[in-house]
Each structure stands twice: as structure tokens, then as C-alpha cells.
Amino acid sequence: GLEHMADEEKLPPGWEKRMERSSGRVYYFNHITNASQWERPSG
């Protein structure tokens, strides 16, 4: 619901949600550090 939507907005600075086109899996990418990970970043 709306709570989940708001929660997605609160990623740490630099992080954004991305989708891997080949598999459709969602991952997280940090455009500041060029880091990427499957787990939702905390902090």
C-alpha cells in the first residue's frame, strides 16, 4: 500500500532501485559509489 511506497522513497543518499533487464530481478544501485547489491541498503 501507500506505506510501502513511502518506504521505497527512504533509501540512503545515492541509492536507487533498478531492474535487471535480463532477469527482471530488482536490485539497488548507488550512483555515488557505483555500488550495487540485491539487498535493500540500510542507513
Rank of each mutant, 00 (worst) to 15 (best):
Q37S: 06
P12N: 01
Y27D: 01
S42E: 08
F29R: 03
R21M: 15
F29E: 01
L11H: 01
E3Q: 12
E9F: 08
S36W: 14
Y27A: 01
Y28F: 07
R40D: 04
S42F: 10
H31R: 13
L11N: 01
G1I: 12
T33F: 05
S42W: 09
P41A: 00
L11Q: 03
E9N: 08
E16W: 02
R25H: 05
W15D: 00
P41R: 00
A35F: 10
Y28P: 00
E20N: 06
L11S: 01
E39H: 12
Q37N: 02
H4S: 10
E8P: 08
A35N: 08
F29K: 03
E16P: 00
R40T: 06
P41D: 01
W38E: 06
L2R: 07
G24I: 01
R21K: 15
T33M: 05
R25Q: 07
G1P: 10
R21P: 15
H31I: 14
R25I: 05
E39Y: 07
G24S: 05
E39V: 07
R21Y: 15
R25K: 09
E3S: 11
N30Q: 02
G24Y: 03
E8M: 08
G14Q: 05
G14M: 05
G43D: 11
Y28D: 00
H31V: 14
G24C: 14
E16L: 04
P41Y: 02
H4L: 12
G14Y: 08
T33D: 04
Q37P: 00
E3W: 05
S42Y: 11
E8R: 06
L11E: 15
W15L: 00
L2M: 11
G24Q: 09
N34T: 06
V26P: 08
H4F: 10
S42A: 10
Y28K: 00
Y28S: 00
D7N: 09
H31E: 07
T33Q: 04
A6V: 11
H4Q: 14
S23A: 03
Y27W: 05
G1C: 13
F29H: 08
N34Y: 08
W15Q: 00
H31N: 14
W15P: 01
R18E: 03
H4D: 13
G14I: 02
E9I: 07
S36F: 11
L2G: 13
G24A: 04
V26F: 14
M19N: 09
G14T: 02
D7A: 10
A35Q: 14
W15V: 00
G14H: 09
M5T: 11
H4M: 12
R25S: 04
H31M: 09
L11G: 00
E8K: 09
V26M: 09
H31K: 13
G24D: 04
T33V: 05
V26W: 15
M5K: 09
A6T: 12
R21I: 15
F29T: 02
P41V: 01
A6Y: 12
P12G: 04
G14S: 04
P41S: 01
K10C: 13
